[in-house]
Design a protein around this nucleic acid. Structure first.
Length: 281
DNA sequence: AGTACCACCTGACGGC
DNA sequence: TGCCGTCAGGTGGTAC
């Protein structure tokens, strides 16, 4: 689940549950989720401290530790199956808890991750990690000008460009499909072939899709029925036109789209997308 | 600069 | 019921 909206929601969850409490203990159940750090280092950095604030950049969540310069930041990336769970009773402990913080009030915060493709790490400053990883600006911080500039000159298909964390950070496979659907652009079209109007639509939909998803708690059950997201299956009806949703592979990733709403070639008239029966805003 | 493939991991699902 | 291949919302490395 963890693309930008999911991580934003997890960050809010952490803020509403886990800030300002002293950390009594740190338990690493599986070291595979540790990035450049070790159990010892993590324990030493966290024990006795408090989580003071949290912020997100793309799919990364940064949690500030108290203690000023000595404090540093806890960094989390949720991979494909990562999540957070704050709980008191042992029977609420998630099945795949990999790192557990226990607070002075007895509650625990679990970093859970079934497939262990996520990471928990320490960083001096978020900016350091952002530049080390060469992450682009957060997708929600990009205006249409910045968006156009960053996609300009891209050689390949638009979908992998949208998902390229170095161009803009936060969009993954699922939301890329949704954004392209709402912008009425075929995922396999060459980025370089897109008109300015196409790019503006993409930029606009990137922001509206992500922010609306956040407003709805990134919960699929609460997302609008006319989003493609809820119809990601071959043969499902397109919520825009009633046509058939199709599956394709673009640069190695499986994805869904509506051939009618997202034509393969720009027929020249999708300049200003005609009256859409699609989501819109 | 792209893409194609493999790897990292676990688990769910469909076909036989 | 069981085995097997495939696929899954992420990223990184390598080889063309």
């Amino acid at each position: 689940m963890p693309e930008l909206p999911d991580v934003e929601v997890l960050g809010r969850y952490l803020k509403s549950t886990s800030l300002h409490q002293k950390i009594e203990s740190v338990e690493v159940r599986n070291e595979k989720v540790l990035g450049g750090t070790s159990s010892q280092k993590l324990r030493r950095a966290l024990r006795g401290r408090r989580l003071e604030s949290a912020r997100r950049h793309g799919k990364y969540l940064f949690v500030e530790l108290d203690g000023g310069a000595a404090g540093g930041w806890l960094v989390m990336h949720f991979g494909m199956t990562g999540s957070l769970e704050y709980f008191a009773s042992p029977d609420r402990e998630p099945a795949h808890a990999r790192v557990l913080l226990t607070f002075e009030n007895g509650y625990r915060l679990a970093f859970e991750d079934q497939r262990m493709l996520g990471k928990v790490d320490l960083a001096r400053e978020p900016e350091g990690l952002i530049s080390d990883e060469d992450l682009g600006p957060d997708a929600l911080d990009l205006d249409s000008t910045g968006f156009r500039e960053r996609l300009r000159g891209k050689r390949g298909a638009i979908k992998p460009a949208l998902m390229d964390q170095r161009l803009l950070a936060g969009v993954g496979n699922i939301y890329a499909d949704e954004i392209l659907f709402q912008a009425r652009i075929h995922p396999g079209r060459k980025a370089a072939d897109l008109s300015d109007a196409d790019l503006d639509a993409l930029s606009d939909k990137t922001r509206t899709v992500l922010s609306q998803a956040i407003e709805r708690g990134a919960d699929p059950n609460r997302l609008p029925e006319d989003w493609l997201l809820l119809h990601r299956q071959e043969g499902e009806r397109c919520p825009g036109c009633g046509g058939e949703v199709r599956k394709i592979k673009v640069s190695g990733r499986g994805g869904y789209y509506c051939p009618a709403c997202q034509p393969e070639t720009d027929s020249g008239c999708s300049k200003t997308s005609p009256q859409r029966s699609v989501p819109g805003r």
